[in-house]
Amino acid sequence: MQPGRNHLVDSVMVKQRAAAFTKRSIKTEAKSSGLRLAISMLDLTTLEGKDSPEKVRSLCRKALRPYEGTIDPPIPSVAAVCVYPSHVRTAAKVLAGTGVNVASVATGFPSGQYPLEVRLRDVTAAVEAGADEIDMVINRGAFLAGRHSEVAEEIRQVWQACEGAHLKIILETGELETYDNVRRASDLAIEAVDSSGVLKDGDVFIKTSTGKISPAATMPVTLIMLEAIRDHYLDTGVRIGMKPAGGIKTAKQALHYLVMVKETLGDEWLTPDLFRFGASSLTNDLLRQLLKGITGQYMAMHDFSEA
């Protein structure tokens, strides 16, 4: 591959390919193991102005124990809980030592329309409060204006401010609008962090959306980002993670995404260390389908605790 090559995207064929993943038939064993895998990849998220410490604590409980009943083997915990910086301490207190990470949005989420030093301080504060993972937003204004090196430099500085916390770079693809932009932004984000030092697998994720803008994650957009990750891997051997967020509400959709990851990047990416779903209502549908497979019956939604 040529360094700095501008990867173009053809919208017709990328949609056709993305649609092909939804034709896979995931049944029996593959379905139950896929559903369990999807649960373990969840970033349970609450990002509202009205969020309360109580809501965050209940989300943490849900993260640790997604289903109240007992089944064998037990349902795994989710990967992380994702909150605003002001709730990081609350979440960290519940989740400390459990293996479930605390993720915090930062950098002036969701718009990123703040001076860089404010955004960086946001990151530092979240890390100091106990965040294991930082979900940053890129500066879409600068990107769309063509100031790509400015965007890259900001990402580098945020990555340095993370000081060991994992970084998820939100491209907010709904605002980038074109597939070419999605690919360009993915390459730019990956190259920005990669150029600032040795990366380990899963240190850095790219992420579709804040969830505040529609459309959020779609399969073609996610496919383009997975292809950027694959190309980087083939060039460098470093595995970047992927997180589609927003709009994935059903278990069936989640399985389609897993199929897409498997067939684009391979089974090595099918781990919470390299793939996450940013969602909350998805959890109970995954549980419902999983229990249907065990008991043969659909349970009512009120049988599952709210996240």
Partner: peptide
């Protein structure tokens, strides 16, 4: 999947066991 070189004529090793589709 392993990084791929074009020069090799050798067949790729089987993918590591992972999440496979049931029949």
């Amino acid at each position: 999947m392993k990084p791929i070189t074009t020069e090799s004529h050798e067949h790729d090793p089987p993918a590591d066991a992972g999440w496979d589709y049931s029949p």
